[in-house]
Structures are given as C-alpha cells and as structure tokens.
Nucleic acid binder design. Structure first.
Lengths: 221, 221
DNA sequence: CGCTGCTTTTACACTTTCTTAACGCCATGG
DNA sequence: CCATGGCGTTAAGAAAGTGTAAAAGCAGCG
C-alpha cells in the first residue's frame, strides 16, 4: 500500500484529500505546517507528497527545497490560480506536477498515478509512452513500431518530454536540456520544433499539450 | 593463441593468475590500475579480461563501463565475498561471469572456457547482411560470394555497421569501436572511409544510409 | 632510397537542419 | 470592443553536417 503525505494548512482541504486518497487505498498522514511536514516526511517516508504552496510560516517552495535535499519522493503541488511564477519555480526545483485549486478528484488521482509510475521506469535505454517508443541507445524513435524520422534537436526535445511523460516540463527546463551550453531566447525557436514534432507524431501517438506561460506536457493519447 | 588481460592491484594475485593462464597457453598482459587496464585493452585487444572489482583509483565497475563502450570482449569478474550488490551491477553492465576470491584454478579455468565459448557461439564468426558476408575469423569480406577487398579500417567499420544492421549506429559508437583509444576527432576521416565502403559495395549489396547529425545505418538492399 | 598501399588531411560543392522573423489566431482583461 | 501576450504556423536565410576528390603523411619493403 502506498503512503501519502498531505502538507496543507486548511483543515477542510486536508479532510477532502484524505477521503479521496483513502478511498483509493492510500495510507494517509497529514501536516498543517511546513516544518512539521518535513518531520513527517522523514519519519513516515511517504511514497508521494501533496504540498500546498500557500503555507503560513515556511513557504511551500522552501519546504520543497529542503525536502529535495535528501529525498526523491514524488511531489504534487497544490496551488491556487495566478501563482504562475511560483508554480514554475516549484517545478524547476523538483516538483513533479501540480493541480490548481479547486480541482476534481479524477484529475488529482490521474496525476498521482502518473508521477508515481514515472519514478520506477527511470533511466532505461528505452522510453515508452503509449504508441511512442524512444530508443536512446540508437537514437531511434518509433510510433506503433513504425520508424519515426526525427532530427537531432527534435529527438532531444521529445526525449525531455517523454522522460517526464504526463508531467509538465517548464520552458526553462527544456531550454537547459536541449540547448545546453548555448543560451538563447527563452522560447523563440522552441515553438517551431514543437510544431514539427506534433506534425510528425500526428494523431497516432501522445499529444504535446501546452500549458500557457509554463511549458509543455506529453500526454498519452 | 588467446590473449588474456589481468586487471588487479595485488601483485601476488597477478602472478598467480599469470601462472595459471600461461600454463593453459594464454598470452598474458597485466595492469595494476584501472586506467592502465583500459589502455592495455585498447592496445592489445585481448580475447578475455580478468577484472578485479576492488581496484584503487578507478572503480572496477567504472572500468567495465568504459570498456563496454567500445568492446565486447568477455570479462570475468574477480570479487571478494559479500560484494553481492556490486557483482549484480557488474553483470548488468555486461560482465560475463564472476569468481569469488579465493578460488580454485579448476573453477577459474572452467569459467574462462565457458564465457569464451559463449561469446564465440553467440556472435557467430560470420555476419551476413543480404548479399554481404563478413568472415570475422579470417577478416575477409565477400559480396555475392565474390571476394571483396577491404582495408583493416574499412573492415572494422563495416563490421560495426553490420553487427547492428538495420539500426542506427551513432558516430560516437563508431569512433569508439573502430578508433578505440586513439584519435578523438568526432568524424573527420570517418566520412572518407564511408565513401570508400560505399564505392566498393556498389549497388549489389546493402546500402550505408546516413542519418544527419546522428550516425549511419546499414540497410539491406 | 623510392616504391606501394593505407590512412589522414584538406578543400569545396551540396544537402539537411536550425534559427530567425513575420503573421494570424485565440484567450484574457481593461 | 480593442489591446495585449502567448502560441501555432509558415517561409527564407544562416548554420551545421555530409559526399567527394585529390593531395599529403606514414608505415613496411624491396
């Protein structure tokens, strides 16, 4: 059974989350404040953390930063709308995804499933997302076992997205990983390559979804 | 006569191994340290490598990883007891077998025989791609049963491509396997040899297809 | 010493890929 | 309702990678 840790100051939100999670078989523990949350995480070693960004006392970002110093546990951010910059910051520090309050339970559970599955299938020589397959060793891509011809940049870009399939990758993260070394405009040429990728993938495989102002997400069809 | 390379920091162990191996007709070379071991391997091209995991300086695992970047030579791990996790890791990286110190000479020789025979049968001494045939044992190539005269470099290059026929071989992979240890130029002279090969193969056999920015692929006609 | 065969270097035309810039679209907010 | 910002799309020039030939190093060998 998976253990989940909720870090949120609103008791109502904690109760709601607990109900949803327990109905799905999670073992749940809670913390109403950042410092406590870190202690709980150290003690219970949860398999997933749900972290509210709008915490009193220690900032949610700060909690995440401290947590990441010693743990790779998947973290799902809970944020209210119009916290764009903070959300981006959280994702770049190492959050795995976020949901915007208010959210539906279906969406919440879907994202939870995704970020937990990802942790297992890390750093393999092959990345599979639905019909899409990336062979990192041979630099080959295929869609439904039909070869897919990609340029080096397209391959690198798709690789970054596929590694975090189902989760958001911020534009900055993409720029750093695909255009490492040479810094350029945050996103001028990126849109073009995204466009090429979408055309090549078509309707058969996963979709590349844009999260305005944040980044992109590769979503299994 | 088979050549064996011993990589171990203890001189006593090296002497023992050398005696055992030479009595079985092996030509033996030694290295006391990981980095030297890799150089020896690149230079002498041994038929089997005996690798101690407990090396000072470069880790035995690291040595194996580097070696596997350009060589498929059978590797026998020498480890002390209670290094289970490391042994498993070594096997996953591509070691062929291991013996636990202290070991008997009979066991050692038995395992050596096994892993060499396994290599031999696994990769048969002949690679066939369409009309093209490579005889690895005699270093001879033929096209439609007509002998094809290749220079040593051309043969090595074609061998790498043929081993992965139908799939992309990265320029880096080619450089590592054909020019192991030596020149690090990304691909200056590579193009020329590819050109020679294409001319010699002509239209009769498989085509060498370029994947711009990535590498080459040998495609059955 | 001057062959000879192999490898590497050099040079340049050519192809593919990348970047840049422009424009239209759609949502959001005044 | 129009202005704004971010995104999708397209086209063209810039940059990077490739094919090819010829010449320049580099061994071994008579």
């Amino acid at each position: 059974m998976s253990k989940a840790l909720i870090i949120d100051d609103e008791q109502q939100m904690r109760r709601l989350l607990r109900m949803v999670l327990e109905s799905r078989g999670y073992e749940v523990c809670e913390a109403a404040e950042g410092q406590l949350g870190l202690q709980e995480a150290a003690f219970h070693r949860p398999d997933v953390v749900l972290l509210d960004l709008g915490l009193p006392g220690m900032n949610g970002i700060e909690v995440l930063k401290r947590l990441r110093e010693w743990s790779d546990v998947p973290v799902l951010i809970l944020s209210v709308r119009d916290q764009e910059t903070i959300k981006v910051e959280a994702l770049e520090i190492g959050a795995d995804d976020y949901v915007t309050k208010p959210f539906g339970t279906a969406e919440l559970l879907a994202r939870l499933t995704v970020i937990q599955r990802r942790r297992f299938t890390r750093q393999s020589a092959e990345i599979v997302v639905g019909a899409l397959k990336l062979d990192l060793l041979h630099h080959e891509a295929s869609l439904d076992d039909a070869p897919l011809k990609l340029t080096p940049t397209e391959f690198a870009l798709l690789k970054v997205l596929a590694e975090h399939a189902g989760r958001i990758v911020t534009q900055n993260q993409i720029m750093k990983q695909v255009w490492a070394g040479q810094s350029s405009d945050p996103s001028e040429g990126l849109r073009v390559h995204i466009n090429h990728l979408r055309k090549k993938i078509g309707d058969a495989g996963p979709r590349i979804v844009n999260e305005p102002g944040i980044g992109y997400r590769l979503e299994e069809a």
